[in-house]
Write a protein that binds this DNA or RNA. Structure first.
Lengths: 261, 261
DNA sequence: AAGTGGTCTAGACCACTAT
DNA sequence: TAGTGGTCTAGACCACTTC
């Protein structure tokens, strides 16, 4: 077992850089160099206090930097660990192609099982609501909308939650208003209702999560969310659905293919 | 000027929620409700200490939460301010369409000027390198690559930096290896060299920035980065370029249009 | 019981900004 | 000079995990 000095080095008292930043730098470098690997436990706060001869608050300050960077996670009573990279779910840009829809299974389920993960959906909720100004504008200002909310989990870990909004005049008293809309999901039902889907617009943003999102997605600190707002248009150019999705950024890579035209 | 109590309320001593979280909640709620607007100064640490009757470290702890959430920024000697939302640059999925390329101006410049912003590019660097394993794999394992790095700024603020990699056997001794590759950029030159572009693959991730990225993009804390890796394929299916882009997430929204097929 | 991280105090000195 | 945030100390008590 190598000494802490050989792994972390020592402070440079002549440096202008704050002590807690120097300690964070030392730990970050050790992680980058593989001296601590994914899932490894870092030295305890007490050990770091003794090694660097600083107060505990200084050490905690250093660790909080690494936590903000998403490099480590702390577990109460256990220690601070190098954050393991969760398996990444790849969202391909053809995921809503009609050929997938025709198989009758939900896209999320199909993809997850293909990747060897156990998919779950929970918190399903279907309600009639008055739309927010943003959703309203995207849907052509309907008075009310049908909102379908749900959360997606992989192997028991929440990775995404989403709300679909549809103009109420379009969705009311159709299978779309049922908890389970049937094979192929709501896009299949929309087409049966005569709304042949033409294209989707997607808007992607990234930001830090709100406290509510941290709870819903059980996010570690230092993990941003990806916000994806998709609007579905039928062949007459009408916006027939807006889906607002929030994803744990460490669980996703989005893939798009663009023609060079 | 309303009292701090009316704006922030008081602590609930019976709550299980940690005091510093309660204070953060109170400040967050006040911001959400518009009691503090973008650019407004929050009460100073001293004022918060007096109002809530807690120690300064507790107040600082609360403020650091809001900073991690990207809600506020602190300025040494001045105060803590509600973070102003920078203007957002929208990247449309047709930004590499040939019709844009034919106009002869760089896409970044055209878009920025259309949006009323002043575009700049700095730090241009063109080098021959040995590719990283990831880049190498994407480009079909060339021995060496040409790397073109640059940083983009809007109105003086860095928003993005990018590196283009091209197989060296393809780019050496061509205008692509020049600092200024000429009108239409390297994609126009690639087509002149006989590589008719067929399509682009884009991979999008979001994560917290490294310290180097914080410096390069002058990121406030609580601002993630969007990583976009684009691979350009010619009509023979060869990967002719990989562009690795890191964007300040608060400055961008990415827009894609997908056919329903 | 021992070790870990989580919360909190009551100070201190410093660096930066405003006036 | 006064006010602000930035850094740091040396404790204290608590909650959680492991044994």
């Amino acid at each position: 077992m190598p000494s802490l000095t050989s792994v972390l080095g020592v402070l440079d008292p002549t440096s202008d850089r704050a002590v807690f930043r120097q300690i964070a730098d030392a730990l970050r470098e050790a992680i980058d160099k593989g001296r601590f690997r994914e899932g490894d436990k870092l030295p305890s706060e007490t050990e770091l206090v003794e090694h660097f001869a600083v107060s505990r608050m200084t050490v905690r300050n250093s660790l909080s930097i690494l936590q903000q960077e998403g490099l480590v996670v702390s577990e109460h009573g256990k220690g601070v660990f190098v954050r393991p990279r969760p398996p990444v779910r790849r969202l391909a840009s053809d995921r809503f192609a009609r050929r997938h829809r025709d198989q009758g299974k939900a896209a999320f389920t199909v993809e997850a099982e293909a990747a060897g993960s156990r998919p779950e959906v929970d918190g399903l909720e279907v309600k009639e609501e008055r739309p927010s100004p943003d959703i309203s504008a995207r849907l052509g200002s309907p008075r009310k909308v049908l909102a379908r909310r749900r959360r997606y989990l992989l192997d028991g870990h929440p990775v995404e939650f989403a709300t679909s909004y549809l103009p109420l005049d379009l969705a009311r008293n159709t299978p779309i208003a049922q908890p389970n809309p049937g094979p192929g999901g709501i896009y299949a039902r929309l087409e049966e209702l005569g709304h042949r889907l033409d294209h989707f617009d997607e808007e992607i943003r990234a930001r830090m999560p709100s406290p509510a999102e941290v709870r819903t997605l059980q996010l570690a600190s230092g993990v941003p969310v990806i916000s994806l707002i998709r609007t579905a248009f039928d062949s007459e150019g009408r916006a027939v659905e807006v889906c607002d999705t929030v994803m744990a950024a460490d669980a996703y890579v989005l893939a798009y293919q663009l023609p060079a035209t």
